[in-house]
Design a protein around this nucleic acid. Structure first.
Lengths: 228, 228
DNA sequence: CGCAGCATTATTGTATACAATTTTGTGCCG
DNA sequence: CGGCACAAAATTGTATACAATAATGCTGCG
């Protein structure tokens, strides 16, 4: 390892890097994000670290507790439900629009995305697979040519990753790739209504695969102390 | 006026204060928001001003241009359309949920909100009337008990205020109060489907009242230079 | 008189210093 | 030995200093 810094980080790129780390579960919910610690890690001052943490808190990926610091967010059961209800409002219609606007280049890109996900899965890199799985949804919004909705979905996807980390029921491999394949078929046929229906079902399946029965979440602060 | 500061502003309260000023058109689109200027106005350092501007930029109410400063956002025609498409995805269903959960206290609150709007309108305070008109929509999301969707709608409402400032066709009084009254009737009857339909129509009417034909927006930077 | 190039000024970008608060550690007393 | 009070350390909150960049104005030449 070189003594010199290889990259000059900006506030935005640090935000993106942290978001990806959270999305990939390299930074699990509850992890303390110390300002000095991060500043040293990226070779920047606390000023820029704080800007990044502020940005992440606005996306509900990080919780800022006054005079206590920043922590990777731990969505409550309530919040988990709300996130998926919001996704249910936004994504099916967006999938419909995407199907109707889909170009061959878009199709190829989505295919590549799914292929990469399988590669990551086979390599045992579940974090990367989860990230790519989320990217699939964001790409659909991009293809629908709705950048405003895309931004909302992008946030909801990242928050969903935290929810999965906390409430995912099975430890087995992600079985949702089937749903994505089915969506691909609808996209290939430019079948908007089918894509809408498939996305709706997909989201319902996702919620069903979560354990959202608990009214309280005991693992929250305890886990944090034990795992670190 | 006292020489002493009456309130100690925090980053959050400054953000809220600026957002309201933007929402009420006291700070029109394109207005330069100088850091020193704001810092002096609120009696805080640039550190906190920057945190507030960063927060507002994340809500797309302020545009940050590197090394040039912060400006009240000037949504493009494209963005304007997208904002209302996003609202069309979120608000009708939310209105339906709200109607089904509506308590008498909620109804009373909405009534008060509308009454206040009329008072502001009669007093010629169009900015306040516009703000209250937006609050009506946000309150509905709150009543629907969906804080995640509420946050999205809140942002979209504020952005809509900028859109209205730029693209509002008639200069006459806001004629949308009728739509809100109709919604109130549906709410009073706890008629979810009707509320959903009325909200959908209301949003369509709103878009129709805008002039979104222009492909380019010449008044953007020119206006800024002339008006200031 | 007009414009190019440079110096000056103003504003933002980043780092650092200091203050405030919380957390942690220690010792005394019951 | 346990618990409370106080002190020390660590961390965040805010302000300020300095650096970098862009905007402005001036001067001299054509």
């Amino acid at each position: 390892m070189s003594e010199f810094e290889l990259k000059s980080w900006t506030s935005e790129s640090v935000t993106a890097d942290l978001e990806r780390a959270i999305h990939e579960h390299r930074l699990p919910p509850g992890t303390k994000l110390g300002e000095d610690e991060l500043g040293e890690a990226y070779g920047i001052s606390r000023t820029l670290v704080r800007a990044a943490l502020l940005a992440l808190s606005h996306r509900h990926l990080v919780t800022l507790r006054r005079n206590r610091g920043a922590f990777v967010a731990q969505p409550s059961v309530r919040e988990a439900r709300e996130v998926f209800e919001a996704r249910a409002l936004l994504e099916p219609r967006t999938a419909k629009s995407a199907a109707e606007r889909m170009t061959d280049a878009d199709l190829a890109l989505l295919h590549t995305n799914i292929a990469d996900e399988h590669v990551a899965l086979d390599a045992g890199d579940n974090g990367r697979a989860l990230f790519l799985s989320g990217r699939f949804h964001v790409e659909i919004a991009r293809i629908a040519d709705q950048s405003t909705v895309e931004a909302f979905i992008s946030e909801l996807i990242s928050r969903s990753s935290l929810i999965i980390a906390l409430y995912w029921r099975r430890r087995a491999a992600l079985c949702e790739t089937q749903a994505h394949h089915a969506l691909m078929d609808a996209f290939a046929d430019r079948d908007g209504p089918l894509a809408e229906q498939l996305m709706k079902s997909h989201l319902l399946d996702l919620v069903a695969s979560l354990d959202l029965q608990n009214t309280a979440q005991p693992p929250a602060s305890l886990r944090e102390a034990l795992n670190r």
